Computed example of a mutant assay.
Amino acid sequence: MSTTASGPGDDRFDPSLSAIMSERRQLINVAYRLLGSLADAEDVVQETYARWYAMSRQQQEAIESPGAWLTTVAGRICLDLLGSARARREKYVGEWIPEPLPDRTEWISGRPGGTMADPADRVTLDETVSMAFLVVLEAMTPAERVAFVLHDVFRYSFAEVAEIVGRSPAACRQLAFSARRRLRASQTPAIPPARQAGLVRDFKLAWEAKDIDALIGLLAPDATAIADGGGLVDAMLLPVEGGEQIARYLVDIAARAPDLTILERTVNGRPGLVAQQDGVTVLVMAFDVAADRITNLWAVRNPDKLRPWTTG
């Protein structure tokens, strides 16, 4: 941002403005992990900045740590949204899956897969945004999720978390402990990314070939597939259980949509697949893998959640 030194007040204001805006990426990262939706995270950050700029200059200067203030406000907004999300999800058609994130790079070729987003709006891709991780977060209470994400992921103290959650530091410590226990119970041993990429690539080839036996061999016998169409497009309303049942369902999809183009992409920091029809992304698929078998498959078809995957 350019500055114009028209007076002492402006000289003081510009560095402050720069510091405030530099918090944007951190706020996006926090809000996405708390909400599982990039669109909602962007709305939260916009509302947070609106509240900052609604204050007088004197009120702003009285805040010792603007970054901490912004995080506190964003965290409280997220907590409120999480509290109302359960009621909204009851009206949601079918299963709800967190909004998938691209990193705009084909992990098979390293070529850019679209226009780069503003760096200030990009979410850092690591294990804390994997689909498996976000799905576990969805099972937590709002207070557990906020306490765990802010303390364990972003290293805020329990005293700082308490300011956001409205509970004592000791209570927030217990919330994070409970959340940690949920996460440990659901975690599977990690496999090397290259091995997961290979499994997903084999899955893609078997799916394109409509090879049921090959698909069954790649899926765990007790695998689960969940789709999210949001009532806007055709998608299975209930999870499909069992490797053979999933394989037959996928082959049926391939038979009914022969013009699908399936691409290897990074989805939430892990190897995944994207299906396009006439150049438009209609499906984003994320995977969880254990013991060299695919154990979970999440297929997002809701077009509202595929907005970040639109190429231009």
Rank of each mutant, 00 (worst) to 15 (best):
S2I: 09
Q46I: 02
L101P: 08
G36D: 03
P192S: 04
G243N: 06
T105M: 13
F133G: 00
P98S: 07
P303K: 07
V146T: 04
F148T: 01
G272S: 04
R248Q: 07
P142T: 02
A19S: 13
Y53E: 15
A291M: 02
L125I: 14
S157D: 13
L79Q: 09
A209I: 06
A290N: 10
Q187V: 08
Q187E: 14
L101H: 12
D234W: 11
A74I: 03
T124P: 01
E90P: 01
A54W: 05
A68N: 01
F158S: 00
S84P: 01
T311R: 15
I164N: 00
D126C: 10
A185T: 14
I246M: 13
P98Y: 06
T3S: 07
R57N: 05
I164M: 08
L70K: 08
E47D: 14
R265M: 14
I63T: 07
A227P: 01
G75R: 02
V93A: 11
A120R: 11
G243F: 13
A117Q: 10
P119L: 10
T4P: 01
V93N: 09
L219R: 08
V274Y: 05
R57E: 06
A162V: 09
D234E: 14
T71Y: 03
V123I: 10
E42Y: 03
V300D: 03
F177W: 07
L134Q: 11
L297F: 12
D211I: 09
G9S: 05
R184V: 13
A299W: 08
R181Q: 12
W207F: 08
D211C: 05
K305D: 06
C172H: 06
E61H: 06
T188K: 13
F13C: 01
F133N: 02
E61L: 15
N302D: 15
I77S: 10
P169E: 09
E208Y: 02
G67Q: 04
V129H: 05
L27M: 08
G198T: 03
A197I: 00
S37G: 10
V233A: 10
I262D: 03
A197L: 12
P102G: 05
L273R: 07
P66Q: 02
T141C: 01
P15M: 03
N29R: 03
S178E: 10
A254L: 07
R307M: 11
N268H: 08
I28F: 09
A197T: 01
R25L: 10
T224R: 12
E64V: 15
H151S: 15
V251E: 04
T188L: 14
G36R: 04
T141F: 00
T71M: 13
A54G: 15
F203S: 01
D103I: 08
R293M: 02
G7C: 11
V44K: 07
P8S: 11
L237F: 03
Q245A: 15
F177N: 04
L232S: 15
A120E: 09
R270S: 10
D259C: 07
V251S: 04
D121H: 11
